[in-house]
Amino acid sequence: MEETLLDEATLLAEFEAKIDAEIKIEPRDWMPDAYRKHLIRQISQHAHSEVIGMQPEGNWITRAPSLRSKKILLAKIQDEGGHGLYLYSAAETLGVSRDQYIQWLHEGKAKYASVFNYPTLNWADIGAIGWLVDGAAITNQVSLQRTSYGPYSRAMVRICKEESFHQRQGYEIMWKMMEGTKDQQRMAQDAINRWWWPALMMFGPHDSDSAHTGNAMKWKIKRETNDRLREKFINKTVPQAELTGLKVPDPNLKINGTDSFGEPTYEHSDINWDEFWQVVNGNGPCNQQRLEHHIKAHEDGAWVRECATAFLNNSNSLNG
């Protein structure tokens, strides 16, 4: 009503005052287009990552080594589907339908975390994913609980409550294998060798090369930079590896100081950015397979949606 009298500059000033005062932005509030666009991109990418992330793990459901591990893996994968749905729910508050988000994914206009374009070759990979990939995701998501957009923040709080089970189940697999036979130890080491770098890549480009960091930090969509989150993850994960006897595949890794809690911090090699951009741009080992599988599952489910729509139309016409 009165809003039409306010010009864009006033609205922006009010919006930024709220951000500065740590007041969350809600779906019906005015927001700059660039803020909305950033959220649409980031939250949908996050949602797609949860759903696509079900594929590499799904590969091992039928091959899990025990009934216990199979049940746990099923529950974890179901959680990932649930996390995708929380996030699509948050993303839909921005005025874009879930259908549209999925269409953008299928058209290659939306991305998901590149880490899921790597294959899961042995059982220890399931351990490495839970421990390292979920561990990296948690580091990011704990920080995002304080994001400025209300629905995204609430989804993050819910997801973080569930994630620590994921990381522990992964770490337990790695630890058990390191306590096992030489072959099992070799498989566990092989898994960390292959997953360490992709997990570090999950935090994205260096802050200086990140196209999206500027406004995202100013408007508190992101609360900590890519590099800062990556450091946090390395600092907490290296001691976890050492405890089980796993070797982090980085010849330049060494302690370079301590943090405010007296825990060690690490110097490390830089990421292979050529590989990073190759995978981001669609040329990773499984990019094509992941997307094709998602499209196929979506198309195979079309008859269910058609039946449900027909059922709804029927019951509406019966009820007059």
């Binding site: 039409t4 609205l11 019906r28 449900a308 729509t309």
Partner: peptide, 17 residues
């Protein structure tokens, strides 16, 4: 100007609850 929440989504994925 202000964000409208699109609850009447024209899709084959049901309505929002």
């Amino acid at each position: 100007m202000s964000a409208t929440i699109n609850t009447n989504l024209d899709t084959d994925q049901g309505s929002l609850w």
